[in-house]
Design a protein around this nucleic acid. Structure first.
Lengths: 220, 220
DNA sequence: GATAGTTTCATACAACTGTTTGAATTGCAA
DNA sequence: TTGCAATTCAAACAGTTGTATGAAACTATC
């Protein structure tokens, strides 16, 4: 097995650089310079640049997903198989938001990397994201058990909107801060989580929308 | 001057290719081949590749923003300066959703291009997006007039969530279809608009005296 | 039809990319 | 120490990219 030193030095350097400068303009040569290793080391240890990126992303994704499922499982067990919808939603968006928001100076490299990954979405990452569906289905299942009266369509839309609000807020956190002139405090992560969960809960529990809106409603 | 033929052939070809294959792997040589013009023509007519992309995106953005403001202005005039919040939200997310969703085979090249732009977010486009804040402020203003009791913070969060749901649904439309096994019909654009507007309205009006939610949203 | 200005074209350029190679070095077991 | 595999390294490779050049082909005006 040897020392693994080079390998992990590359991983750390790559994550740092991608987090800071994005995938677009970080080359292998930048990475090996930062890591203090030889250019060929990346291909020797990872096979290719894409596989390096994939390994970084998979590692972080697994960590987040495990945390989400841990919270979900705990909630369902406590409720004897049915968890309150807010708690499920919190398990869904909480870990990601907590990982990616918060005061910038104490944001981890891993968090900043994941933000980049959600903004730039480079091919190897997209491929992995497509396999995330099974993971989301577990949440859809829990939501269905929590809201048995709700139609599948509504469940999926609720899930979609919850993820939408969480991810978009992360992606565009800078713009929201600027737009609101600092009035929206994105460093107060628990407030953000509460807002997202609250709106998603309303989406899932309030009166459902008519499937077809006669589009006269707008003109009114 | 002159015929402009080459210029517009390049624009059309570039938009088509970017829409189909994304920014990542479309080169200038691909574009000029598709347009049937010489390689040097791009730099001659646009200065650089980035300026070509920027021109494409600006053109489409202006069209969308104009449409949004047109709907907003009409609504506010009809309401004597105050439009119902659903109508404002509909003006905000409607044009984009209508432009980017709907049956794939009848989706315009322009629409598919804008979807790509929202997914891949290449540098010249990011630069332009940052200037969109002034445009959003106009909507924040209208929302404030519509919901005078609401705090600025809540207004901005509502605006953020509305955009979040619209954009995320566009970005991840494929995944939502797969996740829901086709149960969520993304071709029914007016239904999608109604869902987004409905949830965003709830986000903005919940927990308050239902100021003036005219029609059906509060009901059922 | 000569002229001046614009537009097109083939071609070259310079830089950068990820990857490969084969020799040198290291680490470790016998 | 010897031998062998794993690792590191400098260098080159092969390909692609966007851009620049200078001559040729147009176009319109006089």
């Amino acid at each position: 097995m040897a020392s693994d030193h080079t390998r992990s030095a590359i991983l750390a350097a790559a994550e740092r650089l991608y987090a800071d400068r994005g995938f677009g303009d970080v080359t292998l040569r930048d990475i090996v310079a930062e890591a203090g290793v030889n250019l060929a080391a990346v291909n020797y240890h990872f096979g290719s640049k894409d596989e390096l990126i994939a390994e970084l992303f998979v590692t972080r994704s697994i960590a987040t997903n495990r945390e989400r499922l841990r919270e979900l499982k705990a909630a369902e067990e406590e409720g004897g198989g049915r968890a309150p919808i807010e708690v499920i939603l919190r398990a869904l968006v909480g870990p990601t938001l907590r990982g990616c928001l918060g005061p910038e100076n104490q944001r981890s490299t891993a968090a900043r990397f994941m933000i980049r990954a959600s903004i730039e979405s480079v091919p190897p990452i997209r491929r992995i994201k497509n396999r995330e569906i099974d993971h989301l289905r577990k949440f859809a299942g829990a939501m269905r058990r929590s809201l048995p009266d709700r139609s599948d369509v509504d469940i999926y839309w609720g899930l979609n909107f919850a993820l939408a609000m969480a991810h978009h807020t992360i992606r565009e956190s800078e713009r929201l801060t600027k737009l609101s002139e600092g009035k929206c405090d994105l460093d107060d992560v628990e407030d953000v989580v509460a807002r997202v969960v609250s709106v998603a809960t309303m989406a899932l529990t309030a009166g459902r929308v008519e499937a077809k809106v006669p589009s006269k409603v707008a003109a009114r």
